[in-house]
Design a protein around this nucleic acid. Structure first.
Lengths: 342, 342
DNA sequence: TTATAAATTGTAACCGCTTACAATTGTCTT
DNA sequence: AAGACAATTGTAAGCGGTTACAATTTATAA
């Protein structure tokens, strides 16, 4: 029913090969016939069938985006950046929510491969993600977004992340400069590499300041509000006398703030809190959350751009781009009042 | 390079037609050969090429999702429901952000048509969306999600929305029952039908209670924080003496709360606020926002299910599903203190 | 046992486009 | 004006499946 290349060929009195040539603006077409063909395409309101061309060209102008959960504002921001770039370059995005499950991830990957997508943007990679390793081995174009893997078995990967070590460092440093000495640290799952890095930054700041970290005040969890809430209760009731909490994402920080309030204490007067990500939630909560900013949308955009350029053959593989992080100071952290030593 | 139907045929010593038959589990294959073919498919780790089959079957098992902005938690929730359903039924979702632009919407639509997607889920439809009308005329499978259109020129459409009139009504009624008489109303763009409906509910409640609405206290805007902030300042400085504000979405409500605080007043002691949507933001803000709950994820899920069943030919077109709305009472609204009359 | 219907399988055209290669046309030299 | 070469266009074989129709095999009935 729809207009095909044959219809155009017939009307323009040329072969379908020629029509195909003007479609792909190949040089080997005289200006005269090119114009004639284009005119017919206009008249008949022709749009080429991407599926048909994909069958031979292999390219579908479609990318797969794997994220844990689009309902999480962090990933929604990443996704927006990804979609913006795709749209700018004429690509489309198939969105997949893996729910932090390696199995779901694998299922999506095989499904998308069947659909001949041109590449993957993966933001759900674990510390050592077998799915990713396999894709790399199969030489499937892919970029890791926001999350690095630890071992790519020597295979080149493109990675776009932000400076997590710095992020952890400046968060802790800020609290230290405010006079805090007992600073708790709530991290996400250790199998996600960013947590190790943020912890590293935190530890570095502590060490530089000659402060010891209380073991019970550092814990891994799952990046959710509830974990922040429970772990904070635990810490504040424990032996560590923490006066400040650094949480490795905003949701956990929000959970921590709730726990503090739940105990009848105040943020930041009694306990200071610093979060991570700077999602829109940070400015919504009370008090507004001081947090480490990640340029999420930009990360998504750059990663996608990188991938598309690689697909087009405009560049090689194996780049690692680290975007800067910085502290956004709001109201959830203040000077330490219980400085024992002074 | 990848395994094709020919490889399977050769190994299983059958024709490609037979392989295709077991692929589509057509009945006309003997159990014996079916098993043999399946075994070979396993051994060779074969996955059929969706693109190739799409060329003849026309179906790509892919749906297009048009939303204004995935970074908006409301749409993120819808999208999550959509993706969940797609995944459950073996479909994938191409996500498009239209940024409230009819042109962008049209561009995406034509792009997705070229990619032979099986149907559209449209959540960006305006009061009278020409893009949608055209799709309907072309008989493209489509479902409207969260937003109805006003005139489909008699063409049947599937629509999944929530009960906006009721939502507006219960929000206003709640405030009225708390003793408020001067209730402002901040609405989104009038070209989005839900706003007219929510307003209708609000007006109905006011009328039932014998209250008059102050014209300056009702205004259309753009569903964003900033609008809520500015309009609220305007209203509170104006002649209407509003003691409560009903905002047609959570973001606007949050803007309103900020304006109230900005003026040195308290929520809810001085001014009560009720929002709409019950996004995750509602429980984050201070005070937690009393708001009308929409079952966003469920809406997305149901809409997608409807669309897929239609595509599969399991049902006709022209259904309108209205999900219930209810008030979620938190802390942003309280009894009216300035009741003049008493 | 044989004719006939039913079940199974194979052949080949087609989906709409790309592209290697061949054929044709045009341009430039001498 | 003929030959050599470049530019343009056409032919036809895929890409990996689906499916109408024909061919073959098997089951059933007389």
């Amino acid at each position: 029913m729809p207009v095909t290349i044959y219809d155009i060929a017939r009307e323009a009195r040329v072969s379908i090969a020629t029509v195909s040539r003007v479609l792909n603006n190949s040089s080997a077409v005289s200006e005269k016939t090119r114009l004639r063909v284009k005119k017919v395409m206009e008249q008949l309101n022709y749009t080429p069938n991407v599926i048909a061309s994909a069958l031979t060209k292999k390219s579908t102008l479609t990318l797969g985006l794997l994220i844990p959960d689009i309902a999480n504002p962090f990933f929604a921001e990443l996704a927006r950046g990804v979609e913006d770039a795709s749209s700018d370059f004429g690509f489309n995005i198939i969105m997949c929510n893996t729910d932090y499950s390696s199995d779901k991830e694998a299922t999506y990957i095989s499904l998308l491969k069947q659909k001949s997508i041109d590449g993957f943007i993966i933001s759900s990679a674990y510390y050592n993600d077998q799915n990713v390793i396999e894709l790399l081995k199969a030489n499937v174009p892919l970029v890791l977004l926001g999350r690095d893997i630890d071992d790519s078995e020597g295979l080149p990967v493109d990675v776009v992340v932000s400076n997590n070590v710095k992020g952890g460092y400046i968060a802790a440093k800020y609290l230290i400069d405010l006079g805090h000495e007992n600073i708790a640290c709530l991290l996400g799952p250790p199998r996600i590499k960013v947590n190790l890095e943020r912890e590293k930054g935190y530890l570095k700041a502590m060490e530089e300041a000659g402060l010891k970290v209380c073991p019970e005040a550092v814990g891994y969890g799952d990046f959710k509000i509830d974990f922040g809430f429970k772990k904070t209760l635990e810490i504040l009731k424990g032996p560590c006398k923490s006066t400040a909490i650094f949480a490795a994402n905003d949701l956990t920080a929000i959970g921590a703030m709730r726990a503090i309030k739940f105990l009848g204490l105040q943020v930041p007067n009694d306990i200071s809190v610093v979060g991570y990500d700077n999602t829109m939630l940070a400015e919504m909560v009370d008090p507004p959350l001081t947090t480490v900013n990640q340029q999420m949308r930009k990360m998504g955009y750059i990663a996608t751009e990188l991938l598309i350029k690689r697909i087009k053959g405009e560049r090689g593989v194996g780049e690692k781009i680290v975007l800067d992080t910085e502290l956004v100071i709001r109201k959830s952290a203040s000077k330490c009042k219980n400085v024992d030593i002074l």
